[in-house]
């Protein structure tokens, strides 16, 4: 071998670094931390101004309000889900959020392995003693948005543009449609799933296609792709047609105040804080947690910049329905995806 001296230098550098690192490691406090540790896993970037960002805000809120230590990891594949759950559990984290139904399998496996750790799965489907699905009933807010849409549409045609066709997304559309028809029974409803939460051009195309088919009020269930969706509605308005849009997931009224009538909002941070508080008080576990209107986890928020677009009498009806949902007198349609408890032994 005839390598230049740089090799040796680099190796020495690496060795030095490794040694330093080893010494550092000893300074890290051992297990049994005095403050509770809470972790969050997301499968997308927390800069999406939507689903993942809400979870990250929730995590920060838990840190600020309850004084817990918090940590976050973005994971790409289910193989990494297991790894992250195990790592956090091993490192003494007592409460771990997996933000999406996709974490259910890994959470169930980790739950068996670490009975003292509580795993919360947003949109999860299999509760157990220490695995808690967090069921966001965004369909309730979406139903109210549907009632508003039914009152606003002149053509009697409304459209819905979704990302990936998963039960939670589908559920918001089923409810939206029911809300529209509660106000205007003869309304026609169009539905498109682009297959992508993050592709604004696909969303724009799908929205434009629905507008061409005569729809004049559209709602979406997208992530970062919603910018394209709103652009399509904006262009329709600029072209002289009286088209309106609804926001979803986040309060998007300020994202496109010129075209949005209102938003079906999911308050993820508040729900995360509520969940962490219940965990601290020892009341979390065994069953899925309801996160809907009744606990302030979702809400329909009319856009203050477009006051008057929804007629006052419609607003009154919406408020009635809202009270009825909270009182448990009105059940909003949804897609059921909760499973009975597992009999199968979880995979190793």
């Amino acid at each position: 071998m005839n390598h230049p001296p740089t090799t040796a230098t680099l190796l020495a550098l690496l060795a030095t670094l490794a040694c330093n690192v080893d010494r550092k490691q000893d300074d890290v406090p051992a297990t049994d931390p005095p403050t509770p540790h809470v972790a969050l896993l997301t499968s997308g970037p927390v800069s999406d101004a939507g689903w993942h960002a809400g979870a990250y805000e929730g995590l920060q809120l838990i840190g600020d309000s309850l004084g817990f230590e918090v940590s976050h990891q973005q994971t790409r594949t289910p193989a990494e889900f297991d790894e992250a759950f195990i790592s956090y559990a091993e490192d003494g984290y007592g409460l771990i959020f997996g933000h999406g139904f996709e974490y259910q399998d890994a959470a169930s496996r980790a739950g068996e392995q670490y009975p003292d750790v509580t795993f919360v799965v947003s949109g999860g489907s299999r509760p157990s003693a220490n695995v808690v699905p967090l069921l966001f009933h965004l369909n309730e807010a979406s139903y109210l948005a549907g009632m508003a849409a039914g009152a606003v549409t002149a053509a009697g045609i409304v459209g819905m543009v979704g990302g990936v066709e998963i039960p939670t997304a589908k559920g918001t559309f089923v409810a939206f449609e029911a809300g529209v028809k509660a106000v205007r029974a003869d309304a026609a409803v169009l539905e498109t799933f682009t297959g992508d939460w993050y592709d604004p051009s696909a969303a724009k195309e799908a929205a434009a296609a629905q507008l061409r088919q005569g729809a004049d009020v559209l709602i979406h269930n997208l992530d970062a792709a919603s910018f394209g969706f709103f652009q399509a509605v904006r262009e329709a308005r600029e072209g002289g047609s009286e088209a309106w849009a609804f926001g979803m997931n986040r309060d998007q009224n300020d994202v496109a105040p010129d075209v949005i009538v209102g938003s079906a909002v999911i308050n993820i941070p508040a729900m995360f804080l509520r969940t962490a508080t219940a965990w601290r008080d020892g009341t979390l576990g065994g069953v899925a947690e309801y996160a809907g209107l009744r606990v302030g986890a979702v809400e329909f928020v009319p856009n203050p910049a477009q006051e008057g677009v929804i007629p006052p009498e419609a607003l009154a009806r919406i408020d009635e329905a809202r009270q009825a949902i909270i009182a448990g007198e009105l059940e909003v349609p949804r897609i059921e995806y909760l499973e009975p408890e597992d009999d199968d032994p979880p995979s190793p």
């Binding site: 972790a39 940590s71 990891q73």
Partner: peptide
Amino acid sequence: SAGGGAMQREAGVPEV
């Protein structure tokens, strides 16, 4: 890649 996960968890380095 495994170390990358720990960088996020333990040192708060964002995924990007």
